[in-house]
Design a protein around this nucleic acid. Structure first.
Length: 592
DNA sequence: ATAGGGTTAG
C-alpha cells in the first residue's frame, strides 16, 4: 500500500490521474489486493469527477470482499443516483458472499433491479440470485429461477443443493446432487459438508470415498470438512491419512486447515500432535487458540489450557464466547473452582462478553462436580435468563456423582417440564435411585417410563480399525465377528477377575437379580469395543473408543485394568471428556 | 473483472 500511495501522488503531480484507466488501476489494487485498503480506495474514488461503471463495480466488489455488503449496496444506490447504469458485472459483485441477514434485507429488492435493467437471463446474474434465495431459505423462488434458466451450469446446481442444505433438508439436497449432470469439487464438498451440519458424519465419509472413486481431487475446503467429520467420529487413522494427503499433494495448508487438524487431533485424544500443528500455524486466529484450549481442557490438561488462554491474550487475540466455554471447561475437569469463578467474572469485566446460558451451565457443572451442589443451585436461581434443560442436566449429573437423590428429583422435574420426552433424565434418575438404594422410587420411575413409552438412548461406541469405523450398541450382535468378540469379552472378564475385578452394578436400575445385572454391564458397548480392539491389536498399541454417553463406573474400572493387564493404552472419549487409561490408572484421576 | 463449498461449545 505504501508503494501505491507513492504512485498515487506521482499521478497527481504529473497530471496522469485524470486518465480513467489510471484511476481504475489504482482503485482495483486497493479493492482486490490482499493488502488492499478500502478507506484509501474511497479517497481515490472520491477524487474521480465522473467514475465509469467499471470503477463503481470495482468499489462494490471491494466491499463484498471484506464482507461490508451494506456499504456495497449504498455504493450501488449512489451509482444509480449519479445516473450510471449497472452492467452485467454489477449484480454478481453486489450479491457475492451475502450472509443470510443481508440477503433477507436486500435480496428481493435487488432482484427487481435485475429485472428492471434487463439482466434477468444472464447466467452469472441468475446464479447469484439463486444463491441469494438459497440463503434466505426461499427455495421456491430459487427453483423458479433455476427452472427458467436455459444454460444452467454446475454453479446453478450447487446453489440449489446448498439452499436445501441450509434448510437442513439433506435428503432432498442429495436428490438434486445425484441428478447433477456434472459435479465438481465444490459440489462434492458442499454435499459432504451438508451431512456434517446435521451430524451425519459416517455418511459424510462415505460420500468422500465416492468422491475419490469419481476421481475428483479434494481441495482444502474438502479437507476441513473431512477433518471435522474425523474429529466427531474420533477417526484418527483417517485423519492422519488426510494429513499425509495434504502434505503429499500440496493442498493449500491455510489456517482453516490447521485449525481443523488441531481439532481432529485433540478430539482423537492425540494432544501431542495437536500441539505440534499449533506451533506450525503462522497466522493463528481465535479459532486456532480456541480449538487448542478446548482440546487441552477435554483431555484433562486444565492448567495448560489456562496458560494457553493467557498466551492468547498476550498475542492480542480477542477471545469469544466459545473460548470461554473452553476456559470454564478446563477448570471444571480439573476441579479448579475458584479459578473458574474468576474467569467467569472476567468474561464481562475484561472482554465485555455477557455469559450465555451455556456459560451458566459450565458454572453449574464446575460447582456440581466439585460437590458444591447448593452453590450450583444458587447459580441457577440467580441466573438472568431462564435455565434450559442443559443447565438443569448439569446439576442432575452432579447429583449422580454425589448421590443426592432429593436434589436430583427436583432437577429432573424441571427438565421434564421443559423437555418431557428427555429419556436420559429418567435413566439418570433411575441410576441415582439405584445407587442410593431407594428401590420404591426406582420402581415408580421405571413404571412411569413404561407408561409414557420413554426409551433409553442406547449406549453406542465407535472404534476405528484400519481406517474403518466400527459401531457397537449395548448387547450388539450385528458385527460380522460377533462370535469372536463375545468369546474375547468372556476371556477378558475372567482374566480381570483374576486380578481382582468385581463387577460394579450399583447403577444398574433394572429390577433383576444380581447375576443379570452383571450381564447387563457386561454387554455395555464400550466393553464390546474394547474386546474388538484387543482382538485387532498387539500389546503396546493404543485402543481409541468414542462413546455417545458418559462411561459407567464399571466400564471405567474395566478400562483401567485392561490397560494394565493387556498392556494397551485405552483412550475413551465419552460425552463430555477424555479418559486416557494407562498402566491401570486414568488421566481423569477418577474425577469426572 | 462475473456466480457455488470450509474451522471452535452445548
Amino acid at each position: 500500500m505504501d508503494h501505491l500511495k507513492q504512485i498515487h501522488s506521482q499521478t497527481i503531480k504529473t497530471g496522469l490521474f485524470t486518465n480513467p484507466s489510471v484511476q481504475n488501476k489504482l482503485i482495483a489494487f486497493c479493492c482486490t489486493h490482499e493488502n488492499g485498503n478500502m478507506d484509501y480506495a474511497c479517497q481515490v474514488f472520491d477524487k474521480i469527477p465522473q467514475p465509469t461503471v467499471f470503477a463503481w463495480n470495482t468499489m462494490i466488489k471491494g466491499y463484498s470482499r471484506i464482507d461490508l455488503h451494506t456499504n456495497g449496496v449504498s455504493m450501488y444506490l449512489d451509482m444509480l443516483n449519479s445516473d450510471v447504469k449497472p452492467d452485467h458485472y454489477t449484480f454478481p459483485f453486489l450479491l457475492k458472499g451475502f450472509s443470510r441477514d443481508v440477503a433477507l434485507k436486500f435480496g428481493k429488492e435487488l432482484h427487481c433491479h435485475v429485472v428492471k435493467f434487463g439482466f434477468g437471463s444472464n447466467v452469472f446474474v441468475q446464479n447469484a440470485l439463486i444463491n441469494v434465495y438459497s440463503l434466505c431459505g426461499e427455495m421456491d423462488v430459487a427453483l423458479e429461477i433455476f427452472g427458467m434458466m436455459k444454460n444452467r451450469d454446475v454453479i446453478s446446481w450447487t446453489g440449489i443443493v446448498s439452499g436445501f442444505l441450509n434448510r437442513g433438508q439433506v435428503d432432498l439436497a442429495r436428490e438434486f446432487f445425484d441428478d447433477m449432470p456434472i459435479k465438481d469439487y465444490v459440489s462434492w464438498t458442499a454435499m459432504i459438508d451438508g451431512y456434517l451440519r446435521v451430524n451425519r458424519f459416517k455418511e459424510a465419509l462415505t460420500l468422500f470415498r465416492e468422491m475419490q472413486t469419481s476421481n475428483i481431487r479434494p481441495d482444502e475446503f474438502t479437507m476441513v470438512s473431512i477433518l471435522s467429520a474425523c474429529a466427531h467420529l474420533g477417526a484418527l487413522e483417517l485423519g492422519e491419512w488426510i494429513k499425509t494427503y495434504i502434505d503429499k499433494y500440496k493442498v493449500k495448508n491455510d489456517t482453516f486447515v490447521g485449525n481443523a487438524l488441531i481439532d481432529m487431533y485433540c478430539k482423537c485424544g492425540n494432544v501431542e500432535k495437536a500441539r505440534s500443528i499449533f506451533r506450525e500455524i503462522l497466522r493463528k486466529d481465535k479459532f486456532t487458540w480456541t480449538a487448542m484450549i478446548v482440546g487441552l481442557a477435554i483431555n484433562g490438561h486444565g492448567q495448560e489450557a489456562l496458560d494457553m488462554f493467557s498466551e492468547m491474550l498476550r498475542a492480542s487475540i480477542t477471545p469469544d464466547e466459545v473460548t470461554y466455554v473452553g476456559v470454564l471447561c478446563a477448570c471444571t475437569h480439573t476441579g479448579m473452582v475458584d479459578e473458574g469463578r474468576k474467569y467467569f467474572s472476567g468474561m464481562t469485566s475484561q472482554h465485555s462478553i455477557e455469559p450465555n446460558v451455556t456459560h451458566y451451565g459450565c458454572m453449574v457443572d464446575l460447582l456440581g462436580r466439585a460437590g458444591r451442589l447448593k452453590e450450583a443451585l444458587e447459580v441457577i436461581k440467580n441466573m438472568p435468563m431462564k435455565p434450559n434443560s442443559i443447565v438443569w442436566g448439569a446439576l442432575l449429573g452432579a447429583c449422580r456423582v454425589h448421590k443426592d437423590a432429593e436434589m436430583a428429583e427436583m432437577a429432573a422435574k424441571q427438565i421434564l417440564e421443559l423437555d418431557p420426552d428427555n429419556g436420559a433424565v429418567y435413566v439418570l434418575l433411575c441410576n441415582i435411585y439405584a445407587a442410593c438404594n431407594r428401590l420404591d422410587n426406582l420402581r415408580e420411575v421405571r413404571q412411569l417410563m413404561l407408561d409414557r413409552g420413554i426409551k433409553k438412548t442406547p449406549g453406542c461406541s465407535l472404534i476405528e480399525m484400519n481406517g474403518v469405523v466400527h459401531e457397537f450398541v449395548a448387547g450388539d450382535q450385528s458385527h460380522p465377528e460377533t462370535g469372536e468378540i463375545y468369546l474375547k469379552l468372556e476371556k477378558m472378564t475372567s482374566d480381570l477377575k483374576f486380578v481382582g475385578y468385581l463387577p460394579d452394578t450399583s447403577e444398574v436400575f433394572l429390577d433383576i437379580g444380581e447375576e443379570e445385572k452383571e450381564s447387563a454391564v457386561y454387554r455395555h458397548s464400550e466393553k464390546l469395543a474394547m474386546a474388538f480392539g484387543l482382538i485387532n491389536s498387539e500389546p503396546g498399541a493404543t485402543i481409541r473408543i468414542v462413546k455417545n454417553l458418559r462411561m459407567c463406573v464399571d466400564c471405567h474400572r474395566v478400562a483401567k485394568l485392561v490397560s494394565k493387564v493387556y498392556d494397551r493404552e485405552v483412550i475413551v472419549r465419552d460425552k463430555t471428556r477424555f479418559h486416557h487409561f494407562r498402566d491401570g490408572s486414568c488421566s481423569c484421576k477418577d474425577y469426572w
